[in-house]
Design a protein around this nucleic acid. Sequence first.
DNA 1: TAAAGGTTGCAAACTGTTTTTATTTATAGT
DNA 2: ACTATAAATAAAAACAGTTTGCAACCTTTA
Lengths: 144, 144
Amino acid sequence: MVKDVESKIESFLNKCKELGLKITPQRQAVYEALLNREDHPTVEDIYADVRKKYPFISLATVYRTVETLEELGLVKKVAYWGSSARYDANIHEHHHLICLKCGAIRDLEMETGWCMPEEIEGYRTISFSIHIYGVCPSCQKKES
Amino acid sequence: MVKDVESKIESFLNKCKELGLKITPQRQAVYEALLNREDHPTVEDIYADVRKKYPFISLATVYRTVETLEELGLVKKVAYWGSSARYDANIHEHHHLICLKCGAIRDLEMETGWCMPEEIEGYRTISFSIHIYGVCPSCQKKES
DNA sequence: TAAAGGTTGCAAACTGTTTTTATTTATAGT
DNA sequence: ACTATAAATAAAAACAGTTTGCAACCTTTA
């Protein structure tokens, strides 16, 4: 797992060099913070994590950095339900379990057996994701 | 189709009465505006539509009304990609075709044959929606 | 028709995000 | 190492979308 994170950071460094982007501590810290989370943090969450190491980073930088990382194809902005955007460093195809009460989003590794056509109604398809809406365990507890 | 809209409005009136909500022209107009659109309008879009009939309605009322309609189960807030929330009066299960270039979202009536389990990883499931990402025909044209 | 309470319109407040500007820093070339 | 340069940063202000407080208004029920 640690190995995995390290190789991802390495490919991040390579991509930056290829494209002439500078490797700043802030960039690296933001990407690392994202890699170290299994959930889908908001920008504010990432900001909080990074500040533990770099207390002087600014929120605007985090916003800019996640956008850059998205352009690099290293993270994805998850189609979001609540009020703020959520990011995900898990970029291979997977699905989402979304709590309608609190907005929490969890990754779901699952085989659906569904085969996506290459073209639908004139759209050239690229990827798909199943969003399953429900109530998470902790919100279920609150109900009763 | 018109028949369908009328029956939906009727059930809206009934739901309001049941729950002690008042039937105001604004509420009815907002719901009608939503029923008359096949796409997924933003609140601003709905506001513009309703103002053709009721020029004095306020934007805040539209925001409040779509929220009420959602609580009534008559419309859904579509998991959104861009910056503003989008609503949909088509509440029976359907899927979405999303253009990664321009953000357009289209409904997709499609049988997937996938059967959703009642519970997944502790979540009590309620509904699901397949999001298919791709490039819409008009963005494909711009590419070439 | 009058009373009661939900609903509206307006404006102001809030929240998440983006942009502006001056300053700092990583990088490539000496 | 040192310097030039172009990019990235921090901080604050600007912005867009959304929500809220409050007084006036309008449905509803009796």
